[in-house]
Design a binder for these strands. Structure first.
Lengths: 240, 240
DNA sequence: ATGAAGACTTGATCTGGATCAAATCGCAAT
DNA sequence: ATTGCGATTTGATCCAGATCAAGTCTTCAT
């Protein structure tokens, strides 16, 4: 499971990019052409399996990644094992924490994913040198901050049913397969992961999903695939 | 109560700085000398009373502030009145959301405070022009993001007693009056505000505070002033 | 001083979600 | 097909924290 991770850790600035030049633009949409080439020379495209830990909580922030495909969950665990997912990242988000040596959270692939990896010193040097890169990372940090605060409201003040509806809404917003009203998507997360995102137990998540199914708001095509016939009906379940 | 706010809203780029030059360095410690002068010419020092709303949720982000003294709470409210505090800001933090027109949260003085106010267009222009300002705002955004995620763990996975202990620890960390082991501080927040920060009710907050008092971890000098004889004992209450 | 209105504490009871305990459902290996 | 195992659902019970209901303590106006 951790093979991919140990390979990643061996990367240095002198490692050549293997195969990603062609699709770099997808990942780094906010960067200028010059930066793409610069990153391309020193980065490495990697496939990681679902469950693979990209960054470990408490480890050194020795490299950074761009997500090219898949979903990455950011996770905090307490000494006694209690666990909270504190963010979900989708392509083309950036994963890593500039300017801090030790990671306060772990990043783990929630689905099979592809990431573009490059070393810490390169990123931090480029942030200092390149206005546009700093600006896009600043913008992403502010967007993640808004998302984290929105989630604080969900964790602190919403009921279990509202929490589950909020998560479905969040994931649906990132799905491609949407018609005018209806949306279908992969959940990307197990019941246990959903529980850790929502501050609930797996039993409560399961019960609330069947509740939403019985009320006609969602259809559970199979254990990881959901259809929302009417997004407005789902949205109504979120607030009072 | 809202007098100060309406005054603030009239500020434009041409308003002269009244009396803050002397103490600008305190607020904008991360900025270079040139920026201090630049901000000084266009900013306005204001005193705001406890309870005064600095920014309203849903309103336009028409100005930004630096906190010079006091505590500011960031708050989200739901249509049905449920409410969650999503951040506490202390001097010399920056309050405001660059690059977004409408505010998704309100900012309210939790204590009497002094802030240094300047207009949106000035700040956004300066971010684009000044490397060091962008860098320091990017750094603050990342620190706030770490804090928000730490708080997500507290909201999602900690018990009521651990939540209250976490908040006391957070506020104590910003108090000046600390000896080697013991710390005394003003709470800055009412029981209702503490409840809204922790996702609890005021009754539960009150009960947990007396619990911590009876177990000897804190002394309640009066309703808003706490002494922690031993910070390590408080820290032990936070995790398992 | 006296009274009135908030803010806080304390007690009694209720309840949403946790915990404990079986099923049941995949699904991969044989 | 059968077995085994982990993931999920479902049911029964429990409990931490919510809700309801009095008090008490502060503060401030008269």
């Amino acid at each position: 499971m951790d093979v991919a991770r140990s390979e990643v850790l061996e990367i240095g600035t002198s490692v050549a990019c293997r195969s990603c030049q062609a699709r770099h633009g997808v990942v780094c949409g906010a960067l200028s052409a010059g930066q793409l080439i610069e990153l391309g020379r020193h980065s490495l495209r990697r496939k990681v399996d679902a469950g693979c830990e990209i960054i470990a909580q408490g480890s050194e922030n020795s490299f950074y990644s761009n997500i090219m495909r898949g979903v990455v969950k950011l996770c905090k665990v307490m000494p006694d094992g209690r666990q909270q997912i504190v963010g979900l990242q989708f392509a083309p988000d950036f994963v890593g924490r500039p300017f801090v040596r030790e990671s306060t959270l772990s990043a783990e692939a929630a689905t099979d994913a592809e990431i573009c990896v490059f070393p810490r010193n390169l990123l931090e040097r480029m942030i200092l040198e390149t206005r546009e890169l700093q600006r896009s990372l600043h913008a992403q940090a502010l967007i993640e901050l808004d998302a984290a605060r929105e989630w604080m409201l969900t964790l602190g003040r919403r009921t279990a049913e509202e929490k589950v509806a909020s998560l479905l809404h969040l994931i649906a917003a990132h799905a491609e397969t949407a018609t005018a009203t209806s949306t279908a998507f992969d959940l990307s997360l197990s019941r246990a992961e959903i529980a850790d995102f929502l501050g609930l137990t797996i039993e409560t998540v399961s019960r609330q999903l069947t509740r939403l199914r019985k009320s006609g708001v969602i259809r559970i095509e199979n254990i990881r695939h959901i259809t929302v016939p009417d997004m407005d009906a789902l949205a109504k379940k979120i607030s009072g």
